[in-house]
Design a protein around this nucleic acid. Structure first.
Length: 183
DNA sequence: TGCACGATGAAC
DNA sequence: TTCATCGTGCAC
């Protein structure tokens, strides 16, 4: 097991998204280490990407996205759920990868397939927004051997309002996973 | 200062 | 298909 270095995140979000598949998301809180295997993600390509929150510009909410890579961008959606992203690329590019589904590895209870469910099971909330993924609490690590298999590309979920950007194939998931939020 | 609307999930 | 529920961004 090896924590992913800053340079892993500091690349284009499409590359980072695909390479995150098969990696383990780890959250240590109150002495409990929760681990899940990332099996579904979406890439958000910055201010020009109308589906990305960063297309609204630099605001209090999107501030973390505009910062350095390797940090967690967590936000509340529909007043009910949380979604977690990993900030990618050079500082200021405001690109990110949304984590959409995990396969349970350790200490996870409840479902983990879906961005809101994933955060709930991992005990991730607004407290984790801006968290450095190279620190000790929340991070991603490579398992002893990364098993990926075939990667499927699909349209992103829930971004129909984004015009032609909604049609881009920016969602990636592991074909062989039993845990995908939507086919 | 007010208001429409979500990168969702669950129920019907 | 509908609804829960509230922070955000933008119109006034």
């Amino acid at each position: 097991m090896k924590k992913l270095p800053r340079r892993f995140y500091n690349r284009d979000p499409v590359t980072v998204a695909q390479e995150l598949l098969g990696m383990n998301l780890v959250h240590v809180s109150r002495g409990v280490k929760r681990v899940g295997r990332i099996v579904e993600v979406e890439a958000y390509l910055g201010p020009r990407d109308l589906a990305s929150h960063s297309s609204k510009g630099r605001t209090a909410r999107t501030e973390v996205m505009f910062g350095p890579s390797g940090h967690a961008y967590v936000y509340m959606i529909y007043g009910l759920h949380y979604c977690m992203n990993v900030v990618t690329g050079p500082e200021g590019t405001a690109t990110a990868v949304l984590l959409r589904a995990l396969e349970p590895v350790s200490n996870l209870t409840g479902r983990t397939c879906g961005p809101g469910l994933l955060c709930k099971a991992m005990h991730i909330s607004l407290r984790q927004n801006g968290s450095d993924l190279l620190a000790e609490s929340l991070y991603v690590e490579a398992p002893t051997q990364v098993v990926r298999g075939s990667i499927v590309r699909r349209r992103r979920i829930g971004v129909e309002y984004a015009g032609s950007w909604a049609n881009r194939l920016l969602r990636f998931y592991l074909k062989d996973s039993f845990c995908i939020s939507r086919p």
